[in-house]
């Protein structure tokens, strides 16, 4: 009896120490995440995606985020719309955002913005890599997302995302202040207002007048250079939409004429590739840089803040009007 007691006591200490140690590490990590990670519109967008009811869901890169005015689109189409698109949103992210949204509801239509650049680039492991995963609520979908995106990368990327902000200890006070405000607690948008942009509650990012510094970058489009995962998750998204009875519309928003002309051959190949996919997987593809939908005035460089293709708010409003018309007309 004494021996058994002794053995239990002997085993209890390492188990207790290990538990306490792991608990301390977890708490420390959570505190550092809270202190160092600033309020980003990923938090806002993922929250809205999970709580809002909408008919149209816009996914894709920052081009869709700045070029499609969700409220305006809703007004013109008569369908409530949420714009969940944002920079560094790769097809894997779009796919799991869609699945996350579909836990509680089923949108009628998904509008996925196709930016060829994303399909040619492996995502950099930086602060945005785990953003969407980090903000997503716990679910079976999140677990799948983990295996598809976090499984193969450096464990610090998702366990300790504060890792990417470790040189910003000076921002702790500002972060704490922001996180103590009602705006943060209520998922407000006021924090994101800057001289460059206004973020709206529908997820649309309105770009204010003023040129962003960038140059025309031509990316070679070559079928062999397409990132396998990007196409794989896009196809998964197309199949998911088909299985769930959700209409999928893929759109390439206008880019400045100068940018298109500089990389015409590559853009045309990319758009042709998406056209092929649209035929194979039976979805609508609407490209505003080539073919029937192309409108020269929408590609006027004066309407863009940069060569990459981010429109000013007014131009985005104008494009959304055209897009809404085409969307409903073709639909």
């Amino acid at each position: 009896m004494q021996n058994a007691k002794g053995k239990t006591g002997k085993n209890f200490i390492p188990v207790a120490v290990t538990t306490i140690f792991v608990a301390v590490v977890i708490v420390f990590n959570m505190v550092m995440n809270y202190l160092l990670i600033p309020y980003s519109f990923t938090r806002l967008k993922v929250h809205m995606l999970e709580t809002m009811q909408f008919n149209n869901l816009i996914l894709g890169s920052s081009h869709a985020g700045t070029n499609i005015d969700a409220t305006h689109l809703a007004g013109l189409t008569g369908r409530t719309t949420f714009n969940a698109a944002q920079g560094e949103q790769f097809p894997v992210d779009s796919y799991y955002l869609l699945k996350d949204a579909c836990i509680d509801q089923k949108p009628d239509r998904v509008i996925y913005e196709f930016d060829p650049t994303y399909w040619l680039t492996a995502q950099e492991i930086d602060s945005s890599y785990a953003n969407m995963f980090y903000e997503m609520r716990p679910s079976k979908e999140k677990l799948q997302y983990f295996f598809d995106k976090m499984w193969k990368v450096d464990f610090r990327t998702w366990i300790s995302p504060w890792y990417f902000y470790r040189s910003q200890f000076g921002n702790i006070a500002a972060n704490l202040y922001t996180k103590s405000t009602d705006n943060y607690k209520n998922y407000g948008v006021a924090t994101f207002d800057s001289e460059n942009q206004t973020v709206y509650g529908d997820g649309f990012i309105g770009v204010k007048p003023g040129k962003w510094e960038d140059e025309i970058t031509v990316r070679e489009w070559n079928e062999s250079m397409i990132q396998k995962d990007d196409e794989k998750f896009f196809i998964k998204m197309a199949e998911f939409c088909r299985d769930e009875g959700i209409e999928l519309v893929v759109v390439s928003t206008p880019i400045p004429a100068g940018t298109y002309e500089a990389g015409k051959e590559n853009f045309d190949l990319a758009y042709a590739h998406m056209t092929e996919l649209s035929e194979k997987y039976d979805f609508r593809y609407m490209c505003y840089n080539t073919g029937e939908l192309k409108q020269e005035d929408l590609m006027d460089s004066e309407k863009f803040a940069d060569w990459d293709g981010h429109m000013y708010e007014d131009a985005a409003h104008e494009f959304t009007g055209v897009f809404a018309g085409d969307l409903e007309a073709e639909g």
């Binding site: 200490i13 140690f21 450096d154 610090r156 470790r166």
Partner: peptide, 23 residues
Amino acid sequence: PIPVRCVVLFLLLASLVLIGNQP
């Protein structure tokens, strides 16, 4: 003693995030 060992292990782990880089 256990607390010393825990602190050493904790510091090693924290340093990976705090001052470590990525390949």
